[in-house]
Lab assay of single mutants.
Amino acid sequence: KEQQNAFYEILHLPNLTEEQRNGFIQSLKDDPSVSKEILAEAKKLNDAQA
């Protein structure tokens, strides 16, 4: 469930490039146990690119 939530949120971050988004999603698939950390990174990058 946590992985699904992170997946959904990353898909809807407006400021990520397609490449960045795909990278985060691939990381989620590779290691779902760190989905919280991956989501935090994605949000940080999204904010930095706002």
Rank of each mutant, 00 (worst) to 15 (best):
Phe7Gln: 09
Ser35Gly: 05
Gly23Val: 10
Ser35Arg: 05
Thr17Gly: 03
Gln26Glu: 11
Phe24Trp: 01
Glu9Tyr: 08
Lys29Ser: 05
Ile38Lys: 04
Asn22Thr: 12
Ile38Val: 15
Lys1Trp: 02
Leu16Trp: 00
Asn46Tyr: 00
Asn46Pro: 00
Asn5Asp: 14
Glu19Ala: 11
Gln3Leu: 06
Ala40Asp: 07
Lys43Glu: 05
Glu18Asp: 10
Leu13Ala: 02
Glu37Trp: 07
Ile25His: 09
Asn46Trp: 00
Asp30Ser: 09
Asp47His: 12
Thr17Met: 03
Arg21Ala: 05
Lys29Pro: 02
Gln4Asp: 13
Ala50Lys: 10
Pro14Gly: 08
Glu2Thr: 07
Leu13Met: 15
Glu41Gln: 12
Ala40His: 10
Ala42His: 00
Leu39Ile: 12
Ser35Ala: 12
Lys43Asn: 13
Gln20Val: 03
Thr17Tyr: 04
Ala48Ile: 14
Gln49Pro: 04
Leu28Asn: 01
Glu2Cys: 07
Thr17Asp: 06
Glu41Arg: 12
Ala48Pro: 02
Asn15Met: 07
Asn22Asp: 15
Ile10Glu: 03
Leu11Ile: 09
Asp30Ala: 11
Ile10Gly: 01
Thr17Val: 02
Glu9Pro: 04
Tyr8Thr: 14
Val34Met: 14
Leu45Phe: 06
Asp30Ile: 08
Ala48Met: 10
Leu28Ser: 02
Gln26Met: 15
Leu11Trp: 06
Tyr8Asn: 12
Asp30Phe: 06
Asn5Lys: 08
Glu37Phe: 12
Glu2Gly: 09
Pro14Gln: 14
Lys44Asn: 09
His12Trp: 06
Leu16Phe: 01
Lys36Trp: 08
Asp47Pro: 01
Ser35Gln: 09
Asp47Glu: 11
Gln4Ala: 12
Phe24Pro: 00
Asp31Phe: 15
Phe7Arg: 06
Ser27Phe: 08
Ala42Lys: 00
Phe24Glu: 00
Asn15Pro: 00
Gln49Ser: 06
Glu37Gln: 12
Asn46Glu: 02
Ala50His: 10
Lys36Ile: 15
Lys43Gly: 05
Lys36Gln: 08
Glu2Ile: 10
Thr17Ser: 05
Asp31Pro: 02
Pro14Tyr: 08
Glu9Asn: 02
Glu9Ala: 04
Lys29Met: 15
Asp47Phe: 09
Ser33Asn: 11
Ile10Arg: 00
Ile25Tyr: 06
Leu45Gly: 01
Lys1Thr: 15
Arg21Val: 06
Ile38Arg: 03
Leu45Cys: 02
Gly23Glu: 06
Gln20Leu: 02
Asn15His: 13
Lys43Pro: 00
Lys44Val: 11
Leu39Trp: 03
Lys36Phe: 14
Leu28Cys: 04
